[in-house]
């Protein structure tokens, strides 16, 4: 492992992120659109006044969505680099494959962490109190979830030949993962077939852990699993995906 190489791979991803205006704008606009357009609309028909409001309920889900999209999108850079040849600049250097994977993992995780944490700034505006303790806890949980999803994204990206394939992934993996994660509605109200799908979706546990920290009202619109279970499942998913993604890159 070369720390210098990891540093330079991560700093490249950050530079690219902040230089691509469209990407930066999407990152800011997407959660705001969901919260204040979808959320505001649904708030009118979902009556949960007793346990806070629907927009508050959506915040942990929207953070989860942002982390999901950001993690998966940052791994598209692997496909991108392969398509445009830059990957070979790395592959013919003395840097090991593991170092390249570590660099991509670290950059994906930190970019998602940065975006997810920034959303906490919205909390006071929708009436959610967030103190130091909550922020520290959220940073820890977002890091864990981002890491697991980036590893998952890298595993997928290692098997993709072209950018077109990425669209398929978006529609058939990323969006269902978001919709079936309890981000928009409580899992327990779902028909049983769909409910089982949410149980195998690691993002459900990630978002559930965010709810533990942010929503304290109790009632139907709060967390549904124990926090320790959330952390264990996301942690195991992260470990398994890290193993498989580094293996996918080792193959020659």
């Amino acid at each position: 492992m070369s720390y210098k190489a990891i540093y330079v791979i991560v700093s490249r991803e950050f530079k690219r992120f902040f230089r691509q205006r469209g990407r930066l704008l999407t990152t800011i606009a997407r959660p705001v659109l969901w919260l204040f357009i979808v959320g505001a609309g649904l708030m009118r028909i979902i009556d949960v006044r007793a346990h806070g409001n629907y927009m508050q309920f959506m915040l942990p889900g929207v953070i989860g969505m942002t982390v999901l999209f950001s993690s998966i999108f940052s791994t598209i850079s692997v496909v991108w680099d392969r398509e445009f040849g830059f990957l070979r600049e790395m592959l013919v250097s003395p840097v090991s494959r593991v170092t390249i994977v570590a660099g991509k993992l670290l950059s994906g995780t930190s970019l998602a962490l940065f975006q997810g944490t920034a959303l906490l700034l919205i909390a006071p505006f929708i009436g959610l109190g967030v103190g130091i303790k909550e922020i520290v806890l959220m940073v820890f949980l977002i890091t864990l979830v981002s890491f697991s999803l980036t590893a998952f994204g890298l595993f997928i990206a290692a098997h993709l030949d072209s950018l077109e394939g990425f669209n398929v992934i978006m529609n058939f993996i990323v969006l269902p993962m978001f919709f079936l994660s309890g981000a928009l509605y409580p899992v327990e109200n779902l028909p049983s077939f769909l409910r089982y799908l949410t149980f195998v979706n690691p993002l459900s546990y990630g978002i559930d852990s965010f709810k533990h920290v942010l929503l304290k009202g109790g009632g139907t619109l709060t967390s549904e699993f124990p926090l320790s279970l959330d952390i264990i499942i996301v942690g195991v998913f992260a470990a398994v995906m890290t193993y498989f993604s580094s293996r996918a890159f080792e193959r020659r």
């Binding site: 070369s2 210098k4 190489a5 540093y7 330079v8 490249r12 530079k15 690219r16 230089r19 691509q20 445009f84 040849g85 830059f86 070979r88 600049e89 790395m90 250097s93 003395p94 840097v95």
Partner: peptide, 24 residues
């Protein structure tokens, strides 16, 4: 290589720096 393997989103200097750090 036969085809360009530079990162267009980076400056000339940054592309070279990337290379130097890969070579430690």
């Amino acid at each position: 290589f036969q085809d360009v393997t530079l990162d267009g989103e980076l400056t000339a200097y940054e592309n070279l720096k990337f290379h130097c750090y890969l070579y430690n």
